[in-house]
Amino acid sequence: MNTIYYLVQNMLPVSIPLLLVALGGMFTERSGVINIGLEGTMLAGAFAGALFAYNIQGSGLPPYMVLLICMIVAAVAGAVFAQLLSFAAVTMKANQVIVGTAMNMMMPAMILLISKMFFNSDGITTNVRYFIREVPVLSNIPVIGDLFFKNTYLTVLIGFLILIISTLVLYKTKFGLRLRACGEHPHAADSVGINVSKMRYIGVTISGILGGIGGYFYSVGITDGNINGHNGVAGFGFLALAVMIFGQWQPIKIMFAALFFAFLRTLAYSIPLIPFLDNLNIPTDYYKMMPYVATIIVLALTSKNSRAPKAEGIPFDKAQR
């Protein structure tokens, strides 16, 4: 039982960045823009958040306040960084995959450059204690208290809140309907007076916000509030894309996909703690490969009935029929 508690407690903080970034990817793709640059966006958010935390960590603010403030900073940084994509993809009608690749290369170089020049290290190290040993009251509930309210981070709660908001926005608002229309059939949307370019700008900006927050939550929940340019976010931006495809561009399915991938990753890093798997004596690298292998298999299985937005990746040209 303890092993299960341990796995769930560790899985949740890992799943949140995947969930948020995949949701961000969902918003852009639903508006018709492919965002390969999510890895870079995550790094932008993580770096801005960690940098801000580094500067205010001595001011005596409680950790949850630091988290909330830095979350906003990360969101802004991600949104600004994502404008590189929206400008190129929407206004300039450039190849979105290439632009995304450039964004992914830009951030690690930027982080290494800034950290080496101003901090004399490869990244930013903070000492804010985000970790919550147990939530008062709630952790006393049997089973559920152990699963969700012990050894956790505030990010888990915020992540699920954002999931609920995203679902409502996408399915229950006028804006969500319009956004989806732009990704499925932009010309039809255009013909009823929806500004496709504007919707795509908003879609990319939302992915920037969620990507930035996701990146900061990665640094909070997985690397203890630190971030460095060499390891970055370990491919989480790409994994999030896979999570999004596995989740068929639908928020709730994305959540389950994120939990699945987070479970695989947590398993890979906790082999020594699980006697049954430890006894098999398989090198841990095998388990580290698992999420990526699983991604390929999952994509192969779901490709036949993929529900990808029809117009994704195609620049909108009013004159084209």
Binding site: A102, M106, A109, L113
Partner: peptide, 20 residues
């Protein structure tokens, strides 16, 4: 730092995407 070149290269990729 030599990373400045990586930055320059990424900017070049970015602009070559729509320079074409």
């Amino acid at each position: 730092k030599p990373e400045i070149i990586d930055l320059v290269i990424s900017v070049i990729i970015y602009f070559s995407a729509f320079a074409a």
